[in-house]
Write a protein that binds this DNA or RNA. Sequence first.
DNA 1: CTGAAAGCGCTTACAG
DNA 2: CTGAAAGCGCTTACAG
Lengths: 348, 348
Amino acid sequence: MSQPRQTGRRRVTVKDLARDLGMSVSTVSRAFYPSAIIAAETRRAVLERANEIGYRPNPFAQSLITNKTQIVGMVVSDLTNPFYPEVMARLTSLLQQAGMNVMLAAADRPDKIDEAVELLLTYQPDLMIVLATNLDSHAREKCEDAGAPVIFFNRLSADGLGFGVSCDNVEGARLAADHLITLGHRELLYVSAFPGASTNIERQLGFCQRAVERGLAEPQILEAGKFSYEAGYNAGLSLNELPRRPDGVLCANDILAIGFVEALQEGLGLSVPGDISVIGYDDIAMAGWPSHRLTTIAQPLEKMMAATVSLARELAAEREIPQKILRIPPGPLIERSTVRDRRGSGDI
Amino acid sequence: MSQPRQTGRRRVTVKDLARDLGMSVSTVSRAFYPSAIIAAETRRAVLERANEIGYRPNPFAQSLITNKTQIVGMVVSDLTNPFYPEVMARLTSLLQQAGMNVMLAAADRPDKIDEAVELLLTYQPDLMIVLATNLDSHAREKCEDAGAPVIFFNRLSADGLGFGVSCDNVEGARLAADHLITLGHRELLYVSAFPGASTNIERQLGFCQRAVERGLAEPQILEAGKFSYEAGYNAGLSLNELPRRPDGVLCANDILAIGFVEALQEGLGLSVPGDISVIGYDDIAMAGWPSHRLTTIAQPLEKMMAATVSLARELAAEREIPQKILRIPPGPLIERSTVRDRRGSGDI
DNA sequence: CTGAAAGCGCTTACAG
DNA sequence: CTGAAAGCGCTTACAG
């Protein structure tokens, strides 16, 4: 049963299959390329027999010639935000169904991501997908020089170059502002995460913009610094340092919001939504748990992933594609229990 | 700046480097193999120049000859348990530092994992690591036949074959039982997750075993069915169907415990630890959040990962290694706020 | 210690 | 439509 590993039966090659079929290797090889010129009957025979004896072209040998690897590199760094692991698994699964394989580049510290990418590049991925972190322009250029265009998922490259798939965060944040304002909130706050992240920038922009459009003062900003539970918690603890006590807040994302709310409740003894209303962004599974019941803006995840996969297919086919940013409309606002109706509660 | 992709500068090859140095390709090639026979000075010169002009051996061409790919396949399925994403990222990072690259096989449904593995196998990984899911014996054999031994992380193969790295779950669960019993709990319950998972089986075993050793009745068992928040929540809701009301419970893992506790509190209006004490297993970050403050048995994660990486290195070096299971002693019991001292509270 | 040559498993002009 | 040949970028006996 479990033979010594060495002995593992030798992989079957084109030669074996060709001999078996009494054909040349050229012909056999052609059967695997839909656009190759070969008799239909011959192709059928080859494919059938290949299946029987378990032949699959060796992708390494293939890529030596075609310069395509069917490998997509996935760059991740901080998987602490529960939004990403699921995306990662689903995306990988979809990509595999499309015949591509994903290779990972990971680093504990964002500044060490460069090395990881470099190693990955060695395998000449057809393209890269960046998740849960960012790539500086230098690293992005390195990828492109190596022939691998990069797709930024749920975030844009700082310099606006590269491909991108993300939802309309400005619009999503406006939804949040509208919800709060309509329900009578008058003193708004935005809890900011990593200041350089496009998602953060856009959400802040949409939220503030909509607030002044509707006649409120410019919302206050609290810098949490990162998209994490801890950052949200610490931000919550520092609420009292703000010049004015807010009654409605949008956090840069759900995990931040969850930490923020807990700090308000446990640390400051405030009630959410009694004293303050809080909205998140993403609609991660946890946001629906009884312990959080966080009102939030959903991400159009299915559409974002589908867009990413179809972009990946195009890119892998090496059609010359101009860089572009795909914008998906934001998901709806999901009402749960962290926002209260403050109309007629005695404010102006 | 951003030239058309086609034009990307051609990758530099051994030939280029050899010509540049005025040496043969054989010599240049040898410089990259520590065990190859080559003059020290020659090697230095080659390596230095390679670095300057950015030459790296093409791993595809290499593997065609060496039959080693430096690729480790990572099989994942359900990333819903927060225990795994971090392991995945850290492990990948460590493996990369050791010069290996990880390729992912993912599936939404566990029963579709086979296809994903098959596709991955095409790239002839040197070994496989199975995370957050299981592989049936058939799939495992397929991997081994393809020359890729498999390491099960935090779980054992159902048939006990393959390599494994996991903590001593029996011992960990005994710790939990001891803690509960010493603090005066008398009616114990084990909340079981996926019945076939070795972790689940071992934890149940250790817990029950220790309880009867210390003179208690055999603990009751509640079947949650999966390692997930939802499963734990539903199990919690069905607490009243148990013949006897437990006062101390061990859940198969943290995420299950968190769901379980929330159901008790929100659904049944019980107090934890007032009415019932609950212990988890893993010590995921979330267990320490103010909203949960879950008492739990920590996993010796660092050691488990280090053991996995060193096993991976051995396996990649193709030394003939007999299959073995690495057992790490469990981490300590972390006391937080879901267990109460019941001594002298009026029981027997 | 170094170089010329064969060969890994494939694809793809080039003839026929 | 099919086959023989060259070649992708490497490594590794084999001579020297």
